[in-house]
């Protein structure tokens, strides 16, 4: 177990390093992209550009610049934005994390409850008219793009019906739970639902398919032959085994979302999370911020993978090693 954890940690470091090098090369090593020109601004004189280049250390060789950037990003943690001088990247990311976590955890609770319930009912009642109905709802959820759904939700709750039905909906934005718990939940309610629709659709489809497969397995027949209740057959035998792949999928999705995958939802609802930070920094090609958010995202994805592996072993004795 210790060796497993060590190997895992080592590979995490290697993956993160590779990602940082790639991002660095894309933005600094690509011919024709000169960060100094961007920082100096439009119509800057060559002298200004040269000063900027020297000030930001952009006249040094690439490996040295990479090392300097990593040093300031990871060790000194004082790297500043190119676009808003004085804005420190690391605290900026740290303050965005709770927003993203609030959004993703809330949405995850909703989509797991709804998706698994839909999948369970659909799989257990296969052949009845309820099953295709749930399938249609699930496919609809998967097919609605978040940017469209989010805008429509905003349109309805903030504008068209804001005067009547949705007068209780606060304006887009984020309120910390420390400040007001109900405000936090109210601000996040529609972002949660919007983000959860897509995933609830996916998870209901996946879980239903797994459940239908499991219900056709020999062990379910054995369980029925034992004379236990159909409910127990469904929950303790079929659903228990069908959950294994769903849980591992969940770990990966959750990691990606916490890493910034909820970008569109955050942008649409004006939530100052990791996604919005990444979006803004990409708009302005603010390289230190991009580097910071990308490394942070990669770290979460890799971490989620490791957690999934550990969970998988706990859930499925077949992959456990003595």
């Amino acid at each position: 177990m210790l060796r497993f954890a060590l190997r895992r940690a080592l590979s995490t470091v290697v993956v993160l390093w590779a990602i940082s090098v790639m991002v660095f090369l894309i933005f600094f090593g690509t011919p024709g992209v000169d960060p100094a020109l961007r920082i100096a601004g439009r119509d800057a004189s060559p002298q200004v550009v040269a000063t900027v280049r020297h000030e930001y250390g952009l006249d040094k060789p690439l490996p040295v610049r990479y090392a300097l950037m990593m040093y300031h990003l990871l060790i000194r943690r004082d790297i500043t934005s190119y676009v808003n001088p004085g804005l420190k990247v690391v605290p900026e990311i740290a303050s965005a994390v709770p927003v993203t976590l609030s959004l993703v955890i809330g949405a995850a609770v909703i989509w797991m409850l709804v998706g698994l319930a839909m999948g369970l009912v659909g799989g257990a009642l296969r052949g009845s008219p309820i099953d295709p109905l749930l399938t249609a709802v699930g496919v609809l959820g998967v097919s609605l793009p978040v940017y469209w759904l989010g805008e429509v939700v905003n349109l309805i709750t903030q504008s068209r019906l804001h005067g009547s039905l949705f007068s209780w909906v606060p304006p887009p934005g984020y309120v910390s739970p420390a400040q007001s718990l109900s405000g936090w939940a109210l601000h996040l309610l529609f972002p949660w639902l919007t983000l959860a629709v897509l995933y609830a659709g996916i998870y209901s489809r996946v879980f239903r398919a797994e459940l239908v497969t499991a219900l056709g397995e020999d062990y379910v027949r054995t369980a029925r032959a034992k004379g236990i209740s159909e409910r127990r057959v469904l929950f303790r035998h079929a659903a228990r085994c069908s959950l294994i792949p769903v849980i591992s999928l969940f770990g990966l999705d959750f990691g990606a979302l916490v890493g910034g995958g909820a970008l569109v939802t955050e942008v649409v609802f004006g939530l100052p999370g990791i996604g919005l930070l990444t979006y803004n920094s990409l708009q302005t090609l603010d390289l230190p911020v991009i580097m910071g958010t990308v490394l942070y995202a990669a770290f979460f994805v890799v971490l989620a993978n490791a957690v999934v592996d550990v969970f998988y072993a706990a859930l499925d004795p077949r992959v456990r090693r003595a």
Partner: peptide
Amino acid sequence: QDALTALTPV
């Protein structure tokens, strides 16, 4: 017949 598939693996 096949006890491997006839028992719930978990």
